[in-house]
Design a binder for these strands. Structure first.
Lengths: 233, 233
DNA sequence: CTCTCAACCAATTCCGAATTGGTCGAATCT
DNA sequence: AGATTCGACCAATTCGGAATTGGTTGAGAG
């Protein structure tokens, strides 16, 4: 057994594999044939093929996963954008900081791109929150108001980020107390704060919208720290 | 047919249903029995039960979905935070706008919270991009550099948002051309721009970090528009 | 003409079989 | 004896059809 010969034969299989990959037309997702098929096609045993594949994987040319297959390109990162997994690694305070960073910028963008239709819906949501007879109803319309701000950016990825943040919020504060069965008081801080946000967006005041949203979130945070119940904003 | 009698009988079924929901111990996810079972259990026809369920749904007490079932509580929003679905509704330009809104704020937060460990990793990534022999290698380290900025915020939700944005970027520009097999030139604009970003974070210059990231993304966008290939940044 | 109800429809879930990369031990070769 | 190979087996994933479930329709009862 000579190491040189071994390395040589191994490298030749790697070369053969590289040639195949350059020539073959592989499907959209970059998946290449299963090891069993590929080894037969190349006329080598599976063990030999796997050695070559191991080399290419070490080089970062391909990535593999049990049950999935072997693919070209860089390995996609583990989907940290999974709500359930994320919610277990974070806490309300951290989440609040993230909202404080993201949502003002969304409001800023919304001030630039909001259409009359969006403004009308914002007004309607605002009215509905005032009319709400229960906290559940208030929450429904409050959520929709904030989402309409995100929709007003007319930017699909941004809306997706907002939805993710919202889903996280629900997941994190899932075991929330419902110790406030009564409806929100007419002088709840959110009413005037929402008003300020909507007005700024109406006036195309980008800085104002961002500032108003930041102020609003700070109020929510203060309320959240004061009493654990009702994280509604 | 008397409307009063109809309404009365309907209301009674709704009441009966409310009583059942208050008494029944339903599973963790708030799902209640299928309509066929429930109608039999309550001794009413399915049509009658569905009328009552429709009333409760209109009130927002329950929500229903074909194939899933009937559940208590507010309807969860459609998971727009799904990468695959999201990538089909957007385009590179929109995605770029979203990055331009979000990532500078991430850099700003990172300037405040980055640890020496993060700074060291940023420096290492920067060095690796300069040493890169191929575009693929460059892309790997460039991606890691940007992700390290997000990690430096030490905010899990924020990191999740960044990962989502990144996943979207890959999905949207998936059918990308590889017309540039050569390695990046030593005077590639990203090198100095990355340097500016890292320096600002080192100096705890929040505004500077945000501005530098914005400038960098504008360069990337300009490059993206100029030539379709290599959307690397 | 209205209301009811069984059959049917489409979306979703469920579950077992097939697929696939990873691993181990016996067979094989030197 | 020692290293290598190769088939069988393992666990993760996907695939496909059957079952389930909310929604709809059209014939028939009242």
């Amino acid at each position: 057994m000579l190491a040189i010969d071994e390395a040589g034969s191994n490298r030749s299989i790697v070369t053969q594999l590289r040639a195949y990959l350059a020539q073959a037309t592989l499907p959209e997702d970059g998946r290449l044939p299963p090891e069993r098929d590929l080894s037969a096609a190349l006329g080598v045993t599976r063990t030999e093929l796997r050695k070559a594949l191991g080399t290419l994987e070490a080089e970062g040319q391909i990535w593999r996963h049990v049950g999935k297959g072997t693919f070209m390109g860089n390995r996609p990162m583990d989907t940290l954008s999974d709500i359930a997994a994320l919610s277990k690694r974070t806490n309300p305070a951290e989440l609040m900081r993230a909202r404080m960073i993201i949502e003002p910028e969304i409001a800023r963008a919304a001030a630039l791109t909001a259409t009359p239709m969006h403004l009308a819906e914002l007004r309607m949501c605002q009215a509905r929150t005032r009319e709400a007879a229960t906290w559940r109803q208030y929450e429904t319309w409050d959520t929709r108001l904030h989402r309409t701000v995100a929709e007003a950016t007319q930017n699909t990825p941004l809306l997706g980020l907002f939805d993710m943040l919202n889903a996280l919020r629900r997941a994190v504060t899932w075991g929330r107390l419902r110790s406030n069965p009564i409806k929100p008081e007419p002088d709840h801080h959110s009413f005037t704060e929402h008003e300020t946000i909507i007005a700024a967006i109406e006036n195309r005041d980008m800085n104002g919208a961002a500032a108003a949203m930041r102020t609003h979130l700070q109020s929510v945070e203060r309320n959240l720290l004061a009493r654990q119940s009702s994280e509604a904003d």
